[in-house]
Design a protein around this nucleic acid. Structure first.
Length: 578
DNA sequence: CTAGGGTTAG
């Protein structure tokens, strides 16, 4: 809409047409997210005022490309910079590293970094952050190691990024080593770093250690309080999360929208419907936080899970904004639990309308149909999925033993002791079947015989990891399994029974939360998923998972050599030992 | 130029 004219008119009102004015003008547009105006101003500045940009100008423009996810334009601009010899300034290259990293071109980011004569700490951090944000834990650790090996003193941003990068793996040993680094590098009293650390511990299954780290923070702020509250919620301790909320308010720290998201989710998973309703009312009335889309999702989830499907639906109808996929997804999930096909269909239709590229939406609807024996409809959805090339992917489970992390895929036979693992699994399953295990196979999407279904379910990666854990760990240690998918209903029942029959504590982290199994019950109060194992889209970016998808018999072990408070993870790819 | 906490369908 006449961008150049607007930009010029606006600029005419500024008295000093020097570089500083131009830069503040351009960075203003950049911050507001208007890439078009940003470029118009740049054009006018160069062509009409014959002004040469400096690094501030260029960084603002690159940021605008990044924020607008304009990869093509960004690459052209990169070419323009090369042509004009503008890449001498480290800040400009750092901005480009950030742009490529955020827009998914990690190789380009890496190449730019390597071409730098003198990378500064921000260059390193940018490279680290883009890998950490993609969940590339091993790469993030390698970058962190390089920083330490080069004798560079990491700063707050480095520490935060490496801690975030490791959360995806949820490896306790890694958290402990990084904890050591934090002390060694002088961040023992840094609230931002400690907040990330407690979050990492919580996500590695060590809620108690997370609690200790939180206890060591002087005057925790809103974010730190929210992090510990979220940790309790994630571990299924709804009542405790509510207590934390009370303590937070008592200590004079104001909750914000993120705090309420976790609080409502805690109420939902603890089945505390009336408390959740109260907090939903209070958040705007008492704390001045207006409910956003996420809070409506949480409320729909809370009401829906507890069986109040009509209330949940009523809330959706009353929402002041157009419900998004999250809200409909929460309703659909509730419909699955309570077998409400009509409402579930409406939710699924809305999901299709809003996003027909997400394979989860197909699975959910297909699942609703197959759960009620409507195989024709279920198979229609499945073929639609196939038609649209929405492929299913592989699930895996990680388990620590010694200094190694073992990864099991669905039906994995690559472990050298695979025979023993399968034998142990069979023995355990037989034992718990005798104890009355009811197999849950309704989430198998294929219309096959019951015993085939049981066979498919028996090979789930978490069951293999569990059998491995039973074989190699001592009886007094909990078995901790990290999964890339939600745990399925059958595995969930198996874990519960094994915990009571074998008298073991089993901890399973799925992408959303923890399940603590002990004495035949689970901390999630059975609000678990009952879905087949599909990899969510974001996992497709994982390099080491990709390797496995290509060669099914590759065993990946991440080996950590702990060496003077620095970690050197090495990915070993041992071919299957036949 | 990097920069803490993130739930809800899987």
């Amino acid at each position: 809409m006449g961008g150049i004219v607007d930009a010029q008119k606006l600029f005419d009102e500024i008295p000093d047409r020097d570089l500083v004015s131009w830069n503040s003008f351009i960075s203003g547009f950049s911050r507001k997210g208007s890439l078009g105006l940003c470029l118009d101003a740049f054009h006018v500045m160069r062509k009409e005022f014959k002004m040469a940009p400096n690094e501030v100008t260029l960084v603002s423009i690159i940021s605008a490309y990044t924020d607008n996810a304009a990869l093509y334009g960004g690459r052209c601009f990169h070419g323009f910079l090369v042509k004009n010899g503008n890449l001498g300034e480290v800040k400009v290259v750092n901005a480009l590293i950030n742009m490529y990293g955020k827009l998914g071109m990690l190789d380009a980011a890496y190449d730019l970094f390597c071409a730098l004569q003198m990378p500064n700490l921000v260059s390193w951090n940018s490279l680290l952050v883009v890998h950490a944000h993609r969940g590339l834990s091993v790469e993030a650790m390698n970058i962190f190691n390089s920083i330490r090996r080069d004798g560079i003193q990491p700063d707050q941003a480095t520490m935060v990024a490496v801690l975030q990068g490791c959360t995806e793996m949820g490896i306790t040993q890694l958290a402990q080593v990084l904890h050591g680094c934090i002390f060694k590098c002088g961040f023992a009293a840094d609230m931002l770093v400690l907040t990330s650390l407690l979050s990492l511990y919580a996500k590695s299954g060590r809620l108690n250690v997370a609690k200790d780290v939180f206890g060591g923070i002087n005057h925790p702020d809103r974010v730190a309080w929210t992090a510990i509250l979220a940790s309790y919620a994630m571990h299924g301790l709804g009542r405790e999360a509510i207590e934390v909320f009370g303590d937070m308010v008592k200590s004079g720290v104001c909750p914000d929208h993120v705090t309420f998201t976790h609080l409502l989710s805690a109420c939902s998973h603890a089945g505390l419907v009336s408390e959740g309703r109260e907090y939903f009312e209070d958040m705007s009335a008492v704390y001045g936080v207006q409910p956003q889309m996420d809070h409506y999702s949480c409320m729909v989830d809370l009401l829906g899970r507890s069986g109040l499907l009509e209330d949940a639906y009523g809330l959706i109808k009353k929402m002041p904004m157009e419900p998004n996929t999250g809200v409909w997804g929460a309703l659909l999930g509730a419909c699955r639990i309570h077998h409400n096909i009509d409402l579930g269909k409406e939710a699924a239709e809305n999901l299709f309308r809003l996003d027909s590229s997400d394979h989860r939406n197909y699975i959910m609807l297909s699942n609703i149909y197959s759960a009620s024996g409507r195989w024709v409809e279920a198979s229609k959805i499945r073929s639609l999925m196939k038609e649209r090339h929405l492929v299913r992917n592989i699930g895996y489970s990680l388990i620590e033993h010694g200094n190694r992390v073992y990864q099991f895929l669905v039906g994995d036979q690559s472990h050298p002791d695979s025979d023993k693992i399968y034998a142990k699994l069979e023995e355990v399953i037989q034992k718990i079947c005798e104890a009355g295990l009811v197999r849950q196979t309704e989430f198998v999407l294929h219309d096959v015989d019951e015993d085939v279904k049981v066979d498919m379910v028996n090979k789930h990666s978490e069951k293999l990891a569990l059998a491995f854990g039973l074989l190699v760990t001592s009886n007094d240690m909990p078995i901790t399994i990290i999964k890339n998918l939600r745990i399925c209903g059958d595995c969930h029942s198996v874990m519960k029974l094994v915990s009571s029959i074998e008298k073991r504590t089993i901890i399973v982290r799925d992408p959303k939360r923890f399940h603590h199994f002990a004495n035949g019950i689970c901390s999630c109060k059975d609000y678990c998923s009952t879905l087949p194992t599909y990899v969510p889209a974001r996992w497709a970016a994982y390099k080491y998972v990709k390797v496995i998808t290509l060669h099914n018999s590759v065993q990946v072990a991440v080996l950590f050599i702990v060496h003077r408070a620095s970690v050197h993870p090495v990915v070993c790819e041992d071919k299957k030992l036949v």
